[in-house]
Design a protein around this nucleic acid. Structure first.
Lengths: 331, 331
DNA sequence: TGTTACATTGAAAACGGTTTCACAATACTG
DNA sequence: CAGTATTGTGAAACCGTTTTCAATGTAACA
């Protein structure tokens, strides 16, 4: 049905081995053969099957990036970094989404176990550390953006504890002492780490931790609004709010705006992620930026190294973050 | 190195054929064989290679979704629809990004030509219609969200002409006669169609077309701001603005807000896409919603049908859109 | 008891490439 | 000119599965 290397060989009047050699630009092949094969390929519209090739070579030159969904647009830069690093070494990056379902995440990892891809990068896994550890023993897995406690697979992320601490320290340095935190009930390690950073910053400045100032919600804007509503209705409401994501912060600001608070003066806000919208929303949102592109690039470089290595690198790499200061903190 | 079906066969003391039969749950296998194979699989930690299977079956049960980038978050629902439809028939959906580079798009389509995937869906292709037509002759390709003129591959989209027309007709019905349009210089067919709809709506209401009211920019927020700035500085500025995307509309509103226009009263706005942020931004944006999930679902269903069909379906399917009315149009 | 039907099985072919190996032909060496 | 590299080539092995096909053993039936 489909045209195979045999058909090309026949048409070019050479053996399949020679066709393969021409197609893979091996050196020891005559000029006539090259011509003959190329015109046969042309004439037949031949495209070699990866199915045969991949089986023989036992490699696919494809890497799977497993993400929750394409919704969080800030993944985009990470993916971009991954692609650039991969492509430069002849790999393709494929993306698949789990929609936060650990079973589906496992199903997708099946592509790795079944050699449909050479490696996989988890961006915010839902599987637990023990499971991932076990899989990491036998397969080329890496994590990016999120670390997992007690997980010794290759990981590239930022220091979320320090990032949270830096963010809150900045709010304090702006003269605020009553600092609210809006975080999530569903605990990703990065949320936990940022919360730890929040507490450390308070400690740094001798401010007692007040659990009333911490609101646990979800990742959506609406939850940000609710969080802000809750905080501002406290007997002694905070004058600064740190949110573990920009989406949440935008929701929170939305509420504050609707109640007439003067953002950047009465009340200052700090988000996290520096998503595209954070400087579209008025007032512009101050936020913590993480090096998305660089993290994506690095994780792929390390993962590909691991594929070749005899003793894989299971280290944790942390890249530097930075504060982006805009109107919401009065900057 | 890796454990294969042969190892399992040896351990279970049966032939590879029997192992295969057990793994694929064929009926005619004895209970002892099933037990023996299963425990051997368990003991060896065996996971069958798709490389061998895919080659033998000449199918991968994988479909590639080719998108520009994961940045446009409204793709998310489309992808979700695709996944649900695919998964229910035993297919996986993989995503790859082109970053608007037609060469890279072609490279990714190479996965299709090389049987690494069974089909591909293009969401906003950069390749031209002639090229895609040619490829569509031989391979399972479909398009979603964007149609292409003179392109007869399977396509699922909305009627963007009608959508633009409906949007602008609504603005006119609100009592406005001076309607600005902010669109893009880089012409996707959907932009063109929405612009055609804009003109038709004017015609419907006997309003002469004024090319000064049309601003050609880019897809970013900044371009929306510029577009609004341009329009509002006209001698006789529009009182209603239709943007071909929410991102642009939010930028435009951003400018209008900063200049003190009362949005929803002095000046009304209509966007397109109903992205998540369109109801976060204050004032909430009226917009045209397209059935993302349904489009994704349908395109996969049709594509899978085509894989089995002898005479593939190359039709264009258009799904209904709807207006979502919020504060920006005074609703 | 002999024949037929059926269930279970394994050997081998097939899928479409790449790579090894042996071999012929040619080019270099002394 | 004999001997040795070097170059170009094709036959065949190989990658890991699925599937075909023939064969075996057993049960059912007359």
């Amino acid at each position: 049905m489909s045209v195979t290397i045999k058909d090309v060989a026949k048409a070019a009047n050479v053996s399949v081995a020679t066709v393969s050699r021409v197609l893979n630009k091996k050196s020891n092949v005559s000029e006539e053969a090259i011509q003959a094969v190329n015109s046969a390929v042309q004439a037949l519209g031949y495209s070699p099957s990866f199915l045969g090739r991949d089986l023989r070579k036992s490699e696919t030159r494809r890497i799977l990036a497993i993400i929750a969904s394409t919704e969080q647009s800030f993944y985009s830069d990470v993916i971009r970094g991954m692609e650039v690093a991969a492509f430069s070494q002849g790999y393709d990056v494929l993306i698949a989404t789990t929609h936060d379902d650990p079973n589906h995440e496992m199903h997708l990892l099946g592509m790795l176990f079944s050699r449909a891809v050479d490696g996989a990068v988890l961006l915010g896994p839902k599987l637990d550390a023990a499971t991932i550890n076990a899989l990491g023993e036998k397969h080329n897995i890496a994590m990016c953006l999120e670390r997992l406690d007690n997980c010794n697979v290759l990981t590239v992320t930022i220091d979320n504890v320090k990032a949270g601490r830096d963010a809150v320290n900045y709010l304090i340095r702006k003269g605020h002492k009553k600092i609210g935190l809006i975080t999530t009930l569903q605990r990703s390690q990065s949320s936990i780490d940022r919360e730890i950073g929040y507490k450390l910053a308070l400690k740094d400045n001798g401010i007692p931790y007040n659990e009333d100032y911490v609101y646990f919600g979800g990742y959506e804007t609406e939850q940000g609004m609710r969080g802000c509503e809750y905080l501002m209705n406290l007997p002694s409401p905070p004058t600064a709010i740190f949110s573990i994501s920009d989406i949440i912060a935008i929701g929170a600001m939305n509420y504050a705006l609707s109640k007439g608070y003067r953002i950047g003066k009465d009340l200052i806000f700090m988000g996290f992620d520096n998503i595209q919208y954070s400087h579209m929303f008025v007032p512009h949102l101050s936020t913590v930026e993480q090096p998305c592109y660089a993290q994506g690039k690095l994780v792929i470089e390390k993962l590909i190294e691991n594929m070749k290595a005899t003793t894989p690198d299971h280290n944790l790499y942390t890249l530097p973050h930075s504060l982006v200061l805009r109107e919401s903190t009065g900057d």
